[in-house]
Design a binder for these strands. Structure first.
Lengths: 344, 344
DNA sequence: ATCAGCTGAGAAAGCGTTTTCTTGGATCGC
DNA sequence: GCGATCCAAGAAAACGCTTTCTCAGCTGAT
């Protein structure tokens, strides 16, 4: 007859009674403490097996002061970029026996601090992924979130490594590629206003404009998903640009789809570029020219940084900077000869 | 001077001391128990605010016997279908104040039971998403996982609602659509061997073949991602089929990309269909004909079912069956006149 | 004026572990 | 052979919270 503790679940006490030993001994056996008589250990193990005893992680967490869980806060779980980061993080953490708790802020920046705080308290560490909150707010809460790893943001708080992708350089590479193809009128389909990565792209474009005064760059408002790109067709055409830098691959795909519906040829009439190199980018027609970011790897690295923080391995935590790699595919091509130019 | 408890973090005891009351009173105030003198309550709240006290969820969980967290086990976090389910689940659960812990089994079915058990013990309930484990194993562990909701699998265990998509019907609808377009030679690019949804598709195709003996259906081995489709081009062409049912949208996209590289026109030369209607399906060129499954909604419903289980609202938990909706787009078209047929 | 009845707040007992502290018994050295 | 040393295992404290139990002090009725 299986004896149950009051709660109905089998606890350490049940095993102790069944094996005729104390709670402490059961705990020792379960944790591989070898200062226990082999014969008794065997008896405990047998009792545990018979009762199908599984230690309660909550009690364990309370006693040990750790949960073996980390949290991640993302602005939008629908975004493939964040999905990829989550995947990399989850896989890497799992290898070290940690689980991941997710919190989706749905792009409402005012929720982020609360979500982050709640998640942090439940976990041993936190990854804040591309938070939309203001710099001052980030500075304010960062210390209370330690151990903390930032993605695509940074803070002056000590011991908060930040992994940032150099979107500014990436966007310049793309623009350079388009100019080499003869495009002189470019347009940038911007991302979400509060996105720091968008800010970095804009800064990159400023540098680019400074270095290439002959090139005309139009800024268009946008977002981060398909529909943004799809709906931007009119604005893009109105801009008169022949080379379009979309905020990311999703926007680029939406745009290409819209252009296709209008009967326009990519890259014959217009060249389109994305950003991120999500898995889909390779399989669009035409295949998308983009700047590849090793996103999954970034998630893994986030775990590694967080791990050293959690383990308090005093090594300085440097953070890292990732350089996007230009991935030229079929969605970009030579600019048409401008209408104003007379051939021959 | 902020007094700290031994652990370094501020606990209920610190607030109690600062406010000059007992632990119990602080707890009462923090939980909105109104049997406490307003003046004292105010003092406690002030102390809590000043110390920035935040209750420790682990202690709370242990005392209350609940974690306000649910777990989900998926076979592959890289699969957009599971991402969408996760998203729906996470959003719906968040609205009720629950968080989601994720566990990715990376398609290794032997890990699932362990992952599920661990996740379940940390959480108040579990969603098992398209588990790859065998039926007998599922039957075996299901009772120990309660409260449990199954997606795309079912079990005889009581009180385990299962949400299943009628892939069998969906695949028949697609096949019917292709036949209406005049295709008489079809091929099915199958999914992962252990996938129950693949099994359901196969069953559906059997029914279809029985009802349409004149149609030839070739079965091809496959998988669930882009590359599967991309690599299947040769096999598809060798089959001689003019209408291809891909396991899902990803496979279809990979296949279309491969066909495009071979210079073949979709749907001019070959019609291709997907399954799921992931967001990308609308934006492929040509836009993908597929069977739409309300996946995110399914994730939400999973939460609702789990919620009634957790709350022990005795209502029977029926589970639901979802009918895919045929979404005809541009990747399917009339079959070419068969070579063997003489016109006129 | 006295006592039952009530109320508000402190004391303490859980929740399920781990870990320190303690103790009885065995071991070892002289 | 006896005290110092050590070891294995039990008792108990700790982790941080909630909640029951308890009791002092008060209200109000007789």
């Amino acid at each position: 007859m299986v004896r149950k503790s009051a709660s109905g679940r089998i606890g350490i006490a049940d095993v102790a009674i069944k094996a005729g030993v104390s709670h402490a001994t059961v705990s020792r056996v379960m944790n591989g403490n070898y200062t226990v008589d082999p014969e008794i250990a065997a008896r405990v193990r047998a009792a545990a097996a018979e009762l199908k005893y599984q230690p309660n992680p909550v009690g364990r967490s309370l006693a040990l002061g750790k949960t073996d869980t980390i949290g991640i806060v993302v602005p939008d779980l629908a975004n493939p970029t964040f999905q990829a980061i989550l995947r990399g993080l989850s896989r890497a953490a799992a290898q070290d026996g940690y689980r991941v708790l997710i919190a989706d802020s749905f792009e409402v920046s005012s929720e982020e601090a609360i979500l982050a705080g709640e998640a942090r308290r439940r976990c041993d560490g936190l990854v804040l992924c591309a938070p939309r909150m203001s710099d001052v707010e980030l500075e304010e809460i960062a210390p209370s979130l330690h151990p903390l790893v930032l993605i695509n943001r940074s803070t002056s708080a000590p011991d908060v490594p930040s992994l940032v992708v150099d979107y500014g350089q990436g966007v310049q590479d793309i623009a350079g590629h388009l100019v080499e193809l003869g495009h002189t009128r470019l347009a940038f389909l911007a991302g979400p206003p509060r996105s720091a990565s968008n800010e970095m792209r804009l800064k990159g474009l400023e540098s680019f404009k400074a270095a290439h005064p002959e090139v005309d760059v139009t800024m268009l408002e946008g977002g981060s998903d398909f529909d943004t790109g799809h709906e931007a067709v009119d604005a893009v055409l109105a801009s008169g640009a022949s080379g379009i830098l979309a905020f990311n691959d999703l926007v680029a795909m939406g745009l290409m789809s819209g252009l296709h519906e209008r009967g326009l040829d990519v890259p014959g009439d217009i060249s389109v570029t994305g950003f991120d190199d999500i898995p889909f980018a390779k399989y669009t027609t035409p295949a998308l020219t983009t700047a590849a970011v090793p996103i999954t790897e970034l998630g893994e690295e986030a775990w590694h940084q967080l791990r050293t923080l959690i383990r308090k391995e005093g090594n300085e935590t440097p953070g890292s900077r990732y350089q996007p790699r230009l991935e030229v595919r079929a969605s970009t091509g030579p600019a048409k000869a401008p209408r104003s130019t007379v051939h021959g």
